[in-house]
């Protein structure tokens, strides 16, 4: 007696969120149906999407600041920012996960007391060993470094004429950056930033492969795919399924970022617009 597709969907659609949201036991051995694999791997995509979306959103802000820091002529800003970017771009993300996890584990479980003259606040540390917080932090720092390098390149490529025009119109300081430099920087960097977003999304598969444990067997798409391969000894179903899900996700990202790109370029004639080219490089 095997499950129908609807039963697997009902049973496992939210399994990645934890035991309380679905059937507590994963299907085993010969009991595994094709629909189980589709549903559970799709359920794991929840975490891939979560990690990707939050990391890209927070990383974007951090990357802008880092790029400005690296672009700065002040040494005390330039060197730390360049160093940060080099460290996170020059070492494997896989090792970064391991390093940060083993560092997080050493933090005292009851939190760190931070003395702020007036009051003491307790920094919560126990959450950091959980993938959804700790690994997310690593992903944020990592994508911030990669995107900062792109933004830095774009900052240097902002046409001098634009800056002169801004000066002539009396723009200074923050308004000069916000109204002139930043939009141009984004416009120049957007095609490569789209690629960066895609790679980051694919890199989220590393989270549960590395140090971070999957509590209650709630992992990401690749975690479940590996589970199925271990159970069935057949790599020809689960892995291609992960591949398909990621192709769909990649297309969604391309579409979404394409809309932003169109808006950033809306003042330009069609021939001068920045075009997106898919240049995959997944490992980081």
């Amino acid at each position: 007696m095997s499950r129908t597709c609807w039963e697997s969907f009902e049973g496992y659609a939210l399994r990645a969120l934890g035991r309380d949201y679905a059937e507590p036991l994963l299907p085993r051995g010969l009991d595994i149906t094709f629909c189980d694999q589709v549903v559970l791997i799709g359920s794991g995509m929840i975490w891939n999407i979560y990690h990707a979306v939050v990391a890209i959103a927070v990383g974007f802000v951090l990357a802008t600041l880092l790029a400005l820091g690296k672009y700065s002529r002040k040494g005390w800003l330039h060197y730390p920012c360049s160093g940060f970017i080099f460290v996170f771009r020059g070492s494997p993300l896989f090792i970064q996960f391991f390093f940060f996890y083993s560092a997080f584990v050493l933090l005292p479980r009851e939190g760190i007391e931070i003395n702020l003259l007036v009051t003491t606040i307790t920094a919560e540390t126990r959450w950091l060993t959980i993938a959804q917080v700790g690994a997310l932090l690593v992903l944020i720092l990592n994508t911030a470094a990669y995107s900062a390098e792109l933004f830095y390149g774009a900052l240097r490529a902002v046409p001098r004429g634009d800056l002169e025009a801004a000066d002539a119109h009396g723009f200074t300081g923050v308004s000069r950056f916000r109204r002139i430099v930043w939009p141009t920087m984004l416009r120049l960097a957007w095609p490569s930033y789209t690629n960066e977003a895609i790679f980051l999304t694919h890199a989220t598969t590393l989270v549960f492969l590395s140090a971070f444990p999957a509590r209650q067997q709630s992992g990401d798409a690749l975690y479940y795919a590996r589970y199925f391969v271990d159970q069935t000894f057949n790599p020809f179903v689960a892995y291609p399924l992960v591949g398909l899900y990621f192709v769909a996700l990649t297309l969604a990202i391309i579409g979404l970022f394409g809309l932003v790109n169109a808006r950033l370029n809306r003042h330009l004639p069609r021939a001068q617009r920045m075009r997106f080219r898919f240049r995959p490089q997944y490992i980081r």
């Binding site: 598969t205 790599p235 192709v247 997944y282 490992i283």
Partner: peptide, 16 residues
Amino acid sequence: VRGVPDIVFFLFVPIA
């Protein structure tokens, strides 16, 4: 190969 996360390939190729 370029369209699929290569981690999937690293797991897939040796077994296959």
